[in-house]
Every structure is written in structure tokens, then in C-alpha cells.
Design a protein around this nucleic acid. Sequence first.
DNA 1: TTTAATTGCTACTTTATTGTAGTATTTAAA
DNA 2: TTTAAATACTACAATAAAGTAGCAATTAAA
Lengths: 138, 138
Amino acid sequence: MNLSNTSQYAIRVVSYMTFEDEDIYSASSLISKLGVSDKYLKRILTQLSEHGILRSTQGRYGGYILGKSPDKITLIEIVQAMESVEKYFGCVLGFESCTDEDPCTLHNKWAPIRNELMEFLNKTTIKDVLSNPSIIKF
Amino acid sequence: MNLSNTSQYAIRVVSYMTFEDEDIYSASSLISKLGVSDKYLKRILTQLSEHGILRSTQGRYGGYILGKSPDKITLIEIVQAMESVEKYFGCVLGFESCTDEDPCTLHNKWAPIRNELMEFLNKTTIKDVLSNPSIIKF
DNA sequence: TTTAATTGCTACTTTATTGTAGTATTTAAA
DNA sequence: TTTAAATACTACAATAAAGTAGCAATTAAA
Ligand code: FES
Ligand code: FES
């Protein structure tokens, strides 16, 4: 596929915070763990907080914690907090409408795959992501 | 998904040339049919010709014809002529490697969908695209 | 109340994609 | 040989995504 870098980082940071159990996560510790540039990750963290996926505490000894339980955070929710997601679900040839009633020439072959993709983003939660603890890569 | 506009136009123009049977197609006629900007579509046509998907004839009464039979032209071939395709097939979280041996936390869920996507682009030919002639949308 | 450590905000830079403009080159008919 | 209609080439403009820099605001401890 082609999630934006911003979305990829967002998913990774939420996964990391779920996997590594700490009381609170400062931006600087997350930056060094994930190897993403300072200001870029900070902006992502702020956006995630604005959308309720994280909760932030300002000031000294502040930082971020998860805003809700990992089994309530879906991938689509994280991606939506970062970018407009319509492009992932629209017509593969770029036409306005993409329905069975008004299909393009590729619709019949593409729509089933697109539906799986939607289901993947809609149904996969951060808890699912970490269901196999032997895989640790953030 | 998220094919680039350039790839979308390229697929549409090749589909159109397959569906509408003419001796030769001038850039200007294709431009008016597809509603894509003049110079932009011309560049796409030149690129498709360079990759053998079309064959061009310069000079007066020149234009473009298909470079090979529609059942030999795959979607991936057209997309590859327009852009680098690795991004569609790489790790959904952006990691370098994406193999069963070195998976990220999403790999198990993502890989099957990605494989279908690859098969869709690799196996679908322009002939397949036009197998249902009741759908005419270019 | 001061200070250090933290998040938040605004503006800029860089890079890639998308689209536009102008001109050169090619070719066959007149 | 001239000309008209076509493709090819080069350079630029506009937009969006990715990434960087600096400073403001907040907060709890000392
Ligand atoms: S209309 Fe094009 S994929 Fe659905
Ligand atoms: S390693 Fe991430 S999807 Fe395969």
C-alpha cells in the first residue's frame, strides 16, 4: 500500500507505547527509540493527543500516555488522525464515484481487494498488532 | 490504494485505445477524450512509447498505436513505466525488509492482502479490463 | 519565585508529484 | 521545397508531503 510516513510513525509510536510498559512517555524518549526527527514526531504526538488516542500532560515530568485501551484503538483511527483517508478507499482509476452501480472498468477486480484493505484498517486494533510478543520491531 | 494520477491516466489511455478501434490515435484526440491537460498527457504518451507499451509515429498523420496485444499488457507494466512501484509492495509500516523471516508487527495481517494486490497488478491485463464491454468509462 | 524539563505553536526548508509553457524536430502531402 | 500537423524535449510553476528550527507556554520541584 502506501500509508504516509506520518501515519506509519503514528502507528509505530502507539504500538511502542502499548508494548513497553512505562508510567509516562516523554517525546524525547520516544524520539530516541523510534529514530524519528524531533519536531516531526512531536507534531505527530500532539495530533494523536488532539484526537484522544493519546493523552498529554504538559510541564515538567509531563509526557504522553495512551488515551484509551489498546483494544479500542484501530489502525484507521490513527491514520485518520494524520491524514485524509478517502484516497485509500476511492476508485483505483481516480473516478469520482466508486460503487457497484457506477463502476469503472477495473471495479469488479479491484473492489474485493479494497474491501479487505478497509476491513484490515477498520478492524485491526493496537492490541491485535501486539498479539505476537515475539515480534518486537518499532 | 493510491496509484499516482500519472499511472491512473496511463491505464485509462491504454484502455481507451484498446476499446475504441481506430487506425491511429493522435495526442490531441486522446486529450479531448480523457480530459487530461495537453502537455501532461503528451509526456505520459511518450513514456508509454519508450517502454514499448505504445508505438509512436512522428510527423504529419503520425500518432500512437498499441505496442503489443492487449492481453500482453499488464497493469504493473503500465504503472512501472510511470513510477517506481516498490512502495506499493513494501512494509506497511515502512521498514526496510518485509519478509516472513523478518516481519514487523503488522506483517502477518498485511502480507496476504499485499499479495493479492501484487497479483492484481501483475496478472490483470488490459484485455481483462475490457472483458465487460457494457462498462465504458475512460 | 525561580528553574529545568516538558509539550505546543508558527514558520520555514526540502523534496516529490502534478501540471503548464514554449520550442524543436519529424514527416508526408501539396 | 514548402508547409501543416504531428510527436519530442527542456525548463519552469504550483501544490502537497516530509522534515527542520526556534520560541512560547506550562508545570512541578527545588
Ligand atoms: S469505480 Fe473504479 S474501482 Fe470502483
Ligand atoms: S514487514 Fe511490515 S508488512 Fe511485512
